Simulated assay, not measured.
Amino acid sequence: MLGCLHCTGGAALLYALYRWVIPAAVQYHGGLALLWHDIIVERMLDTLTQSTRPQRLLGAVQKNATRGDPRSVVKAIDEFCRHKEWAMNVGDEKGCILDSVVSELNPATVLELGTYCGYSTVRIASLLPPHAKLITLEFNPDYAKIACQVIAWAGLEDKIQLVEGSSAEWIPKMKEHFGVKMLDLVFMDHWKDDYLPDTKLLEDCGLLRKGSVLLADNVICPGSPDYLKYVRRSPRYKSQYFRSHLEYTKAEDGLEKSVFLG
């Protein structure tokens, strides 16, 4: 009997550590939050459920979001990530900054680098004017498959062109393959080491016009210091930092908005 009580008490302690104590302890430290949520917890749940985080996120959308309602899809993902399982979307707090930039710019042609599960894709597309074009690139085919289903659930498949492959491969093909002359907005949320080389590639390919906006996520955590140094010091950009927090935590992070001056 005593042994059973010890087992029950131990299980309760482990659950409390997993569910509340450790998440609270890492809330204010971006590196620890990423280690806990994006490596330890994700791998553990993948093993226990024999599924992937994107699959579980899609399940939450299909269960809780109204088909054809983009904002309910965004809300369902935010609820899942805040109360069930963290995921590295741009998130609700920084998502409002993204929304304001899109609404202010009212872009006709948008390129998103890094689709993941389609969260920011849905946010952007839901705010675009009629006949606007959103091209989103995703390197991971498993993520792309989930994102297609999330986008379809939001009813936005007609406004979005999702392309599998690397940014280095597809950026030079933008004009020829998609008929893109210039990009009004580029949202960068892929590998942080690719921010700077992809920016230079966009310049070299003539895809940026005077007034084109680059909006980069996670510039503090995980961070992209070489990119920040470039856009803040280059006379070709006017750059502004929007201080916020790493998605679904209290750790500092932010978005960098850089207007191309020509």
Rank of each mutant, 00 (worst) to 15 (best):
G3L: 11
H6D: 13
C7L: 11
T8I: 15
G10H: 03
L17Q: 13
Y18K: 04
Y18D: 10
R19A: 08
V21Q: 13
I22D: 00
Q27P: 02
Y28K: 13
H29T: 15
L32Y: 12
L35R: 13
L35V: 08
L35F: 10
D38I: 09
D38F: 05
I40D: 00
V41C: 12
V41L: 04
D46M: 00
D46A: 11
D46L: 00
Q50A: 11
S51P: 02
R53N: 04
Q55A: 13
Q55E: 14
L57N: 01
L58T: 15
Q62T: 15
K63W: 07
K63I: 10
K63Y: 06
N64W: 06
T66W: 05
G68V: 12
D69V: 01
I77T: 15
I77S: 04
F80S: 01
R82G: 03
K84S: 02
E85F: 00
M88F: 07
K94R: 11
G95N: 08
I97D: 12
D99E: 14
L111R: 09
E112I: 04
G114M: 02
T115M: 04
C117Q: 11
Y119C: 02
S120K: 06
V122G: 12
L127F: 06
L128E: 01
L128V: 01
T136S: 14
P141C: 03
A144K: 07
K145E: 13
I146G: 01
C148N: 12
Q149S: 05
I151M: 07
L156E: 00
E157K: 02
D158F: 02
I160F: 08
L162H: 09
G165T: 14
G165L: 04
S166G: 12
S166L: 08
A168V: 14
I171N: 01
K175H: 01
K181R: 11
K181Y: 05
K181F: 03
M182H: 09
M182D: 13
L183F: 10
D184R: 00
W191V: 15
K192Y: 04
K192M: 03
K192E: 14
D193K: 11
D194E: 11
P197A: 11
L202C: 03
L202P: 10
L202A: 07
E203Y: 05
D204E: 13
C205K: 10
G211S: 08
S212C: 09
V213R: 00
L214G: 00
A216K: 07
A216E: 08
A216M: 06
A216D: 14
I220T: 15
C221Q: 12
G223D: 02
G223K: 02
D226M: 07
D226K: 06
Y227K: 07
L228Q: 14
L228S: 13
K229L: 00
V231A: 07
R232M: 10
Q240T: 15
F242A: 05
S244P: 08
L246M: 10
L246F: 08
E247F: 03
E247R: 00
Y248R: 03
K250A: 10
D253H: 03
G254P: 07
F260S: 01
